[in-house]
Amino acid sequence: MSDNDYIIEMIDVHKWYGSFHVLKDINLKVKKGERIVICGPSGSGKSTMIRCINHLEEHQRGKIVVDGIELTEDIKQIEAIRREVGMVFQHFNLFPHLTILENLTLAPIWVKKMPRAEAEEIAMKYLERVKIPEQRDKYPGQLSGGQQQRVAIARSLCMMPKVMLFDEPTSALDPEMISEVLDVMVELAEEGMTMLCVTHEMGFAKKVADRVIFMDAGQIIEENEPEEFFSNPQNERTQLFLSQIIND
């Protein structure tokens, strides 16, 4: 394939909820190792867009190719893509009936058929990276929000994904816990992980993003390098949005 250096390609993607047109003609190409921050007002379709990448939402028109695999109705291909793509949710979505360690080892053991000892070794490695190895035997309900989100990141990393999708990872957190999660994400970015983050943390965007994408009403309105994007937004709606969120 000629376009091998793109890990995600979205070409002319459209999506409707009933008669409501949520995604309009989305074209997005992501290179390996690229870090992209997606922002925009609520209801603009940014979460829907990244959720289409691992088929948590279905697109109705257009083409999505992840790591050379085209996303179709075929469940085998969807599962293959999901093994390559990790996802972190706004509400963590840890499995409350399993311990932290079990949360982390579940997918490697059952999806990748990894022996338990090996899966636990990898799990501990990632728990240490998110700095909470001592919580391994607790249940998610016993951890704080920030800790839970770090566990959720570690859980995705245990599958050794090629791409990580973050769907507003800090918006459900108390303010004092946001930085501990962002620190982990920055570290991950510095290690060269391909990341797509839907977030309003503009500090994070300035620090790590290669590109910032602004969406409104289901369309990509503007995309640029962070410095340009923040200092010199082209589109009127981008300017309005930025003036509203960066009010200090």
Binding site: M87, F89, M159
Partner: peptide
């Protein structure tokens, strides 16, 4: 969604 995103059938 979490289960699906991890690739579980």
């Amino acid at each position: 969604e979490a289960a699906a995103s991890l690739g579980l059938t």
